[in-house]
Nucleic acid binder design. Structure first.
Length: 426
DNA sequence: TCTGGGGTCCTAGGACCC
DNA sequence: TCTGGGGTCCTAGGACCC
């Protein structure tokens, strides 16, 4: 049996924790550059604003003046997420954090009624202590738990925020009412393909011969099908386990053409990625830099390219990651092109305790490691960017804009890292 | 005027080997 | 005329997720 806890309209709910006047109003949270809608309150959903809607198209769905638009503050959301996951971890076993606003877990009782009561209390406890409303579903498989949690969310009044799908007859009834597109793991392409075959509900999909599903699509899709039949077979990677790739990328606030300006961004992304590597106690075997133009500007030449570098010795040192990211950047940068986005990705990650030193490597691994520890220590103490190792111009002409940041109290600005402890004078 | 960021897994096909 | 067979490893690209 699996439980799934899912935060309702998570980013909007987080903003409401700090600004209760947003309650009851249509609120959306916007992605970087205030580009797309990435979270909607129920009121905003009711106005017909779709997920992923570009901000400038909100007016096609309603009067934009009635909608509160907020720039995303992911640091705040991550923190509230941790608090919720900690509460969950203190109440149930086998928590698998699946995303910032979702986690699977094992419900504690054999009896469904007992579980329901216990989890309904958990929903209340999370709301009381963190202020974010959550929904919980539980079922024999994760895919069914997903469907159950959606019902729990939708019919909150009658479900206490908890819904279970356990008896086969009940599962059948619900699957008949579940559009195929709503099944976890069935995206746009698969939906289109299945609809062509007349498969429009989760129930019809579950009834297809497994061999056919396997032959037409893949083992992944077949597993999803078995999940709907109540079999537990999706190996959700315990996210507490290390990543296998890490990426930092941004769409710039505007198109850049100057090499220095784009390079600035690449250096910044490489440093940020190296920092995350060290936080995870991992080292990278490859570094990839990519750049691309603005896919919506037909008046500019479009160019997109990437280059992967293999490191002689896996590393998490900012100097090394930046060094390779810049070699890759210089390989792909073309004068005369217009750049709107860049990113640095590291791959082939392994625990930093497992590095094989390469005797031919001129880089002095232990020294670099000690240096990075010192840098991280200083930055930890005095605030994020006191010490940098590599030249950034400081102009940061690439920085995305965020014009709808919530005005907040000083306490919250400290809390979100907008104000940090200053170094002592002298 | 304005269109996000960060991940995972699977498969097909090529290189290479015996 | 005839031109093996099977295995592994790697990579690029597609599909999906939140």
């Amino acid at each position: 049996m699996y439980g799934l806890i899912d935060c309702n309209n998570f980013f909007v709910s987080c903003e409401r924790v700090f600004n209760p006047s947003l309650n009851g109003r249509p609120v959306v949270v916007l992605s970087n550059n205030d580009g797309c809608v990435i979270a909607r309150s129920n009121e905003a959903k009711a106005l017909g604003i779709p997920m992923g809607c570009p901000a400038f198209q909100i007016k096609e769905h309603c009067d934009p003046r009635q909608v509160v638009q907020l720039s995303a503050r992911h640091i705040v959301y991550a923190d509230l997420s941790h608090r919720i996951m900690n509460i969950l971890g203190s109440e149930v076993e086998d928590v698998e954090v699946y995303s910032v606003d979702e986690a699977f877990f094992r419900p504690p009782y054999d009896d469904v009624e007992q579980n329901h009561d216990f989890l309904a209390r958990l929903v209340k406890k999370v709301y009381r202590s963190v202020g974010v409303p959550v929904s919980i579903g539980f079922a024999p498989s994760r895919s069914l738990a997903k469907i159950a949690s959606h019902i729990a969310k939708k019919d909150r009044r009658i479900t206490d925020g908890v819904y279970w799908l356990v008896r086969p007859e009940a599962i059948d009834i619900i699957l008949r009412r579940t559009p195929i597109a709503d099944v976890w793991g069935i995206g746009r392409r698969l939906t289109a393909s299945l609809l062509e075959r007349g498969i429009d509900t989760a129930y019809k999909f579950a009834q297809m011969p497994s061999g056919l599903v396997r032959a037409l699509y893949s083992v992944t899709v077949e597993r999803t099908q078995r999940e709907l039949r109540g079999e537990d077979c999706i190996p959700v990677n315990p996210v507490n386990i290390a990543h296998s790739t890490l990426m930092t990328s941004r769409t710039f606030g505007h198109v850049l053409t100057d090499r220095r300006e784009v390079q600035d961004a690449v250096v910044h992304f490489a440093q940020a990625t190296a920092r995350r590597l060290r936080d995870e106690h991992q080292v990278a075997s490859t570094v990839t830099t990519y750049v691309r133009g603005d896919r919506f500007r037909e008046d500019l030449p479009y160019y997109s390219n990437s280059c992967e570098m293999r490191l002689r010795t896996p590393s998490s040192s900012a100097m090394t990651i930046v060094y390779y990211a810049l070699i890759a950047f210089n390989t792909i940068f073309r004068e005369g092109m217009a750049y709107r986005k860049a990113g640095v990705m590291v791959g082939g990650l392994i625990p930093d305790t497992m590095v094989q030193l390469n005797v031919w490597d001129p880089e002095d691994y232990p020294k670099q490691r000690a240096l990075m520890q010192a840098v991280d220590g200083i930055n930890q103490h005095y605030g994020a960017h006191v010490v940098k190792l590599v030249p950034e111009s400081g102009e940061r002409s690439w920085v995305p804009h965020q014009t709808h940041l919530a005005t907040t109290s000083k306490t919250l600005r400290i809390y979100t890292g907008q104000i940090t402890k200053l170094p002592p004078k002298g």
